[in-house]
Each structure stands twice: as C-alpha cells, then as structure tokens.
Nucleic acid binder design. Structure first.
Lengths: 328, 328
DNA sequence: CTGAAAGCGCTTACAG
DNA sequence: CTGAAAGCGCTTACAG
C-alpha cells in the first residue's frame, strides 16, 4: 500500500477479482496466464506493492527476523551482521535490528520484536534473562544464541568449538617451546571467554606449563592496559593467548611500545581472525572462527523451525582453525 | 499477538470492551483509572502484546525506519548504525536493516522497505537510481542520504562539510611547510571523495603548492597499495591527505614497511576519526566527522517529515574539526 | 481457474 | 468515560 494503491484498485483496473490479484502475488491456487498478465500490467501501471502487514495479519506469519547485537565495536560483528543480512535476504526475509548493551537481554530489549511477531530471533553475544526465556518459549519463536553457549539448554546455541580451539592453541604454543604463558580473558561472565580459558589452562596443566590469568574486557584498550601492566611488572611470559583479536592488537601495541619483540621475546595468539589481523603491522596469529558456517547453520535451523516448530535445543559447535602468522 | 493472546481475550478477562483495551495501550480517548488497572493486570496475566501489524494496518502508519547501508567493512559504519538504532529506539521506532553493495541503490534493494511501508528511509553512503527516486517521491516517505550529497536535490542529504574540511586540512599542511602533496581518493564517483579532493586542491592551487592525485577505493588495502607504489617510485611527497582513515592506516603501514618516518619524512592526514585512529601505533591526525550531530539532524528531519510531510530537500553540512595527533 | 465473503487484530468515529 | 460497529488490506476456504 505505497502511494495509496491496494489490491482492490489493481483488481478493478485489471477487471478481475481481488482474489486473483492476491493469487498472482502470493501463489496458492493457480491463475490463468491471461489473468496473470492483466493483473501484472495493472499493478505495474499503478505502482502496486502488496502490504506486508495485511498479509502477515492474515497468514499469522511474518518474514522478519529479529537480530539482537551486543557491541558493534568489535569488527567481528559487522561481518556477522553482513552475512546474516545477505543470507536472509536471499530467503525473502528482512532483518529487524536491535542494538543492546546488556550482557543479559531484558524484556524491553526484545519487546519490539515480539510486537512485530518476528519469525525468528538471533541473539549475538548475549544471554537471556529468565523472563525473556519464558516469554520466547511460550511464543514458539525459534531463537538462536550466536557465539554464546548457555548453561541450560533452553535454546540452540551456535559457536565455534572454543574448547577445542584453545586446547589446540595451548598445544601449539607448548610445541613452540613456550614454558610460561598468560591468558588474557574477555568479560569473564561470557561463555566464550570461559571456554577459551578452560581449554587453554587444562591443556597447560597437562603439559605442566606455568600460566597466569588476567581478566580483561574484550576491548583494544583492555588488552593494551593489561599487557602494559604485565610489562611494567617485568613479568613477560613466553606467550600470550588473548581471548579476542581486538584485545590481542592492544597487547601487540603495548609490547611494541615497550620494545618487546614479537615473536622473539614473546608470542601472541588472538581469536576470531578479523580482517585487520592480516594487516602487515599486526600480522597476528589467530584462530579463525568459521563465521560463514556458523551463520549457515543458524539460518538453516531458524528456517526449519519456522517451517515446523520443535523447540529443539542444544549446542552446535563448529570447528575453526589456527591461522599462523608472524606473532608466533 | 504473541502466544495467541489478542485484545479481545484481554477485554474478556478484564470485563471491558476491546476498545478500552486499545485505549489503554494506544492512548487517545482517556480511560478511567479503574478500567486501566483491570486491563493492565489482565494483559499481564495473559502475556498480551499488541500486534503492530494490525495497528499499522489501521493507522496507516508504521514505526519502522528502513536503514540501508553500503559496506560495513569500514568501522565508521557500525558506529553510525549504533547511533541510529539508539536514537530511533528512544522514539519508539525500530530499524529494518538492509545491506547493499550497490553504489547506486536499485529498486530491489528497497522494495522490501516499501512493502513494509516504512515511516522513513535512511541511506548511508550510496545514491539512488532514478527509478527508486521516483518511487520514493511518489510514496511520500521521507528519505535522507547520509554522508552523500546528491547533485540534484531530490532528497535531504546530511554530510559533514567536506569542502570546508579539506580546505582546512590543506591550509594546515601548507602552514606546516609541506610543499608537495598527495591526495589519495576514495571511490571517485562518491560525492564525499570528490568534495574532499576539490577543497584540497583548490586550496593548494591558491597557495601554489604542487600535488598529485591517486585514485583508490576507501579500503585499507587500497591505501596500502597506493602508498607502496608511490614509495617504490621514490616520489615521496611532504604530505598525504587520504580520503578516509582506514586507507590512511594502510598508507601509514606501507610507509612504516619502507622505513619512511612519519611525521618527519612525510605527514599523513586521514578523515573520519574512527576509534582506531587513536591507537598508539597509528595515532593518526584526522578530521572528525561529527557523527552524533549528523545522526541527530537526520533523525530530527525524519521525525518532522513523518509528522508532516513536506518533501523538502537540500544539503545539510555539519562542521567537523581537525584532530591533531602524531602523524603531522 | 475464478469470485464473493469471512476474518486476521487492531483503531476510531459515533452514540450514549 | 465506555461500547458496538465499521473498516484497514490482505488471504483463503468455499462454491461454482
């Protein structure tokens, strides 16, 4: 119903019923070629656009996906956003975008999505409050936690295999001869940071390698300051494993500032494989999160649940890989 | 209409009419305190959410803003996205997000927005094809070109004052004693790159300063390669003005790679003031685009036009400022 | 294959 | 302040 033209107007001009107009645009019962052509040219002439709201009202379905993102500062997210938008567009779905700063999504964050009766919800990098969990479960809207693993399996979560990744990173650094390491965590109440920490330290324990853990916050500044304080204490380890790339870049810059050569004096491994890790000034060894595959799995799940809701939950973990560059 | 509860159900439980339920949630005619309370508690009990689609159908208004973004690679855009989302959320509007790769928006890019009858459209960093221009004009949906200036004033465009900015940058570098400069452009068919080029060279002409222009593409890689080729030819200027920050970082890295000291051997000025310019490894002198103000102007305009459509067009240019750091 | 009619969930004159 | 009723633009049994 743009510029005031509706299906009735088209029907009148085409000399057919409104039902036929609907059938041409929506499918369902077949329409004769002749009718189709009359409708199409009338629609073209009038500039008709079917009103999605009326359609959704009657079909009780929408073709909108709610995407809730926390923190767009990290270049990892724009990439994720782009992939989701592209994938859903191909399927005829639109993205209703919500930006939040809460690590735990509150009702108000997604009330809007519920009002729009979205067909599915994807939450990146955040968990859900109990109230929201119940609301969503009741509404039977498929929901995916992207890049977060829940303790309780109320929903599907899609992540890279963070435990496996951090084990492999620990083994890799151990084989490089590093005998004393540091893990710089992200926000410690995130599953990603916890899993990366756990896989890392349990592997180091096995090899009887010493380590220290520093808590940081997934930001460049956080990585920079943490590394700086380590350097100032003179406790430079033989390797840093940093919970994401953007912090690892902060670490590298702090080391450079204090003329500590990488990878000679110490080594640094990040996580994510954001585009910037490839910049020559950083050239950071990191773990590639298989974003495309993660997005694909998520989209497939959501589409299947839209078709046929089961509410099936669990954790999907997708294997990533080490990208070796010049910081190790 | 989440979990199947509608206004009628609430009305029944509350023992009032559907009209009263509507009035409690929508406003309009006043409702007695008693009725309000009955409605509210019934709604709470049933978990009622008003259906936005039915509401939009009847009011012929939506509370959705279409946001079309080109290229999320540059960290400038996530920042813009965040500001728009936050600002519109406060006003009760949602964001329907469209990602495109077209410098000239085609009908298919925004057909979806028209189907949803969005209240307003914001296009960042792209122009509109003629067909789309006509469609939008006819539909009377307010539209803003954000960070792009149109030659023909069909719509409102909101930019920083790129001409003024580049003149000031030229003067600044001239006063620093630079006698021979390079402008590295973005995509040359964008108004932003053209304006930055024009203001820069006309000011250099006035001062009779020599310059060369190299065409690039607004990407890190583009900046890196362009600077590299300049260095390899041995034609190092006394200053580079680079059309955006991300390219300027590529330039800095290329210079560093070839051990050309900044700001001694040459100087570099970027554009945007993205967060990374502040990282110690870059510490880039740049021009701050006043994103918050640009977003505010845009949001205000859209809201006013939603209230009372005039279709008024023109260019709003907002003053930015030079941020002097250590590359000059 | 086609059309007339019911109905999706809501808002809003209208009458009281 | 409240309720009954019309109607937004569409889809979809239903009957032909």
């Amino acid at each position: 119903m743009i510029n005031g033209v509706n299906a009735k107007d088209v029907a009148k001009l085409a000399g057919v019923s409104q039902s036929s107009v609907s059938r041409v645009f929506f499918g369902g019962t077949p329409v004769s070629e002749k009718t189709r052509n009359k409708v199409l040219s009338a629609a073209e002439e009038l500039g008709y656009n079917p009103n999605e709201f009326a359609r959704s009202l009657i079909t009780k379905k929408t073709r909108i996906i709610g995407l809730v993102m926390k923190g767009v500062e990290n270049p990892f997210y724009p990439q994720v956003l782009k992939e989701f938008t592209t994938a859903f567009k191909k399927l005829g779905y639109s993205i209703l975008f919500v930006q939040t700063n809460n690590e735990e999504i509150q009702k108000e964050d997604i009330d809007m999505l519920l009002n729009y009766n979205v067909a599915g919800i994807i939450i990146t990098d955040a968990m859900l409050s109990l109230k929201v969990t119940n609301d969503i479960k009741k509404s039977k809207i498929p929901l995916v936690l992207f890049n977060r693993k829940a303790e309780k399996n109320d929903f599907l979560s899609v992540c890279t295999n963070n435990l496996d990744a951090s084990r492999q990173i620990a083994n890799f650094l151990h084989q490089k001869g590093c005998s004393n390491m540091v893990y710089i965590s992200g926000d410690r109440n995130t599953s990603t940071s916890r899993d990366r920490e756990q896989g890392f330290i349990e592997t180091l324990d096995k090899h009887q390698v010493e380590y220290k853990i520093y808590e940081s916050d997934y930001s460049y500044e956080g990585g920079y300051q943490t590394a700086k304080s380590i350097v100032l204490k003179g406790e430079i380890p033989s390797a840093f494993f940093v919970a994401n790339d953007i912090m690892a870049m902060g670490v590298l810059d702090a080391l450079r500032k204090h003329s500590i050569e990488v990878p000679l004096a110490t080594k640094v491994v990040g996580f994510d494989n954001i585009a910037m890790t490839n910049w020559p000034i950083y050239n950071l060894t990191t773990w590639e999160q298989p974003i495309s595959k993660m997005v694909e799995k998520t989209v497939n799940y959501v589409m299947e649940e839209i078709d046929n809701y089961t509410g099936i939950a669990g954790n999907i973990e997708i294997e990533g890989q080490l990208i070796e560059r010049s910081t190790t």
